[in-house]
Computed example of a mutant assay.
Amino acid sequence: MHFNFTPEQQQFSDALRRWIEKDYTFEHRNKIIQSEQGVSDQAWATLTELGMTALPVPEEQGGFNGSAVDMMVVMHEIGRGLVIEPYFATALGAQFLKLAGGQESLLEQVAGGELKLACALGEKQSRYELFDIATTAKANGGSYVLNGSKTVVLHGAQANQLIVSARSSGGQRDTSGISLFVVPADATGVSRREYRTLDGHRAADITLENVELPASALLGKEGAGWDVLDAAADYGATLLCAEAVGAMEALNEATLEYLKTRQQFGVPIGKFQALQHRMAEMFMQLEQARSMATLAAVKVSSADAEERRRTVSAAKARIGQALKFVGQQAVQLHGGMGVTNEVQAAHHFKRLTMIELTLGDTDYHLARFAAQPGFRKAA
């Protein structure tokens, strides 16, 4: 089966790659990482100008109504170029707004690049189980009061609005009783502790202390947020799969180029058959990952929740295995230089490591895949 991008998808890909190669070079990216803000307003303005912020937004709110396959094209280039801007966090937040409905104004701001979002979902005890929520949301007349803490919120300090999961009823690990809220990042009672992650991105731990919100801040229905949360998390995992494929592709290219130029015993080390075999295996791992990322992008919008969960977890698990192999082999083939910050391959390896740990690692998704109905035959 042949999978070809449409002319519009190819245009998005080409435009983004040209900008990265010309203006978002490895050296420029390193300067952004070392800056106080950790992201670039100029780069964000360019992403907006190229239509990237409008891509996932419905046409009615000024967007292009891009599908997960359209977003796969963009995330692939972001992975290749090691873009550290808060694009993934905002796209994931926009998915929450779309699934919940009734947030047209915010989506318009996302499309115009005026609004950056972050998703405050994980807590210190929850690991990858996003239904394990200790943060509380208490109804108080016509408003809600939130209390709790969220950890490792990607680009939480750069966001204008936070998508927060909280428990309005039920036990701590119940899927029922979960509510979702849009919380202004500068709301009274919100504090953010920012730090740099392994891959150069920025994250924050967020504390909510008696944060009072109007009823309009509620996404969807009170206590019925799990289906939206589960579906949006799968969408986010699908975007990460596409980013990982782009990063692996660039890492393979850099490793191959290094084998062609690094000499030992008077010949390029790429002439050695043992290293050729390792590069061939890296290529096979990449192509299998690419196929699974494509399948996840096609199936993530399926009306059948079981099929969506099964496919996304299969993709995230398989790509987790592939990125570990490709990353480790690339580092070894580069030798000691493969772990230095001066070499771009090291940064790709670090980003791949973080992708594997975000929204469920390989072991988590293998277990989730096996837990889906129909995996085990009845005795």
Rank of each mutant, 00 (worst) to 15 (best):
N147R: 11
L97R: 02
A242Y: 00
A68C: 05
H28Q: 15
F96V: 08
F283L: 04
S191E: 14
M284C: 12
T197N: 02
I319Q: 00
L229A: 14
H365T: 07
L16F: 06
F272Q: 08
M354W: 03
T53E: 00
A166C: 12
E77A: 12
T197C: 02
K150S: 06
S179Q: 05
G93M: 10
S179M: 04
A317L: 02
Q161E: 15
F349E: 13
S179Y: 02
V343G: 03
M282I: 05
H2A: 10
W44Q: 15
Y258M: 13
G63S: 05
R262G: 04
A293H: 04
D205M: 08
G122I: 00
D23P: 03
A303R: 09
Q372N: 10
F96C: 07
N140R: 06
L213T: 06
L106T: 05
R80K: 15
D227R: 12
H28P: 00
T48P: 09
H277E: 15
E129L: 10
M1I: 06
L55D: 08
V331Q: 14
L121Y: 09
H201C: 14
E59T: 09
A297C: 05
S149Q: 12
E85C: 07
H2V: 14
G141T: 02
E49W: 06
A139C: 04
E253Q: 15
L55C: 13
I133L: 14
E307N: 13
V183N: 06
L99Y: 07
L208T: 00
S143V: 03
E77F: 01
A118E: 03
A159L: 04
R29M: 10
I206N: 04
A242Q: 03
L121N: 11
G336K: 07
V110R: 04
E8Q: 12
N147T: 13
T48F: 06
I78A: 14
L323P: 04
E281H: 11
P373C: 09
Q332K: 09
G225Q: 11
I355H: 11
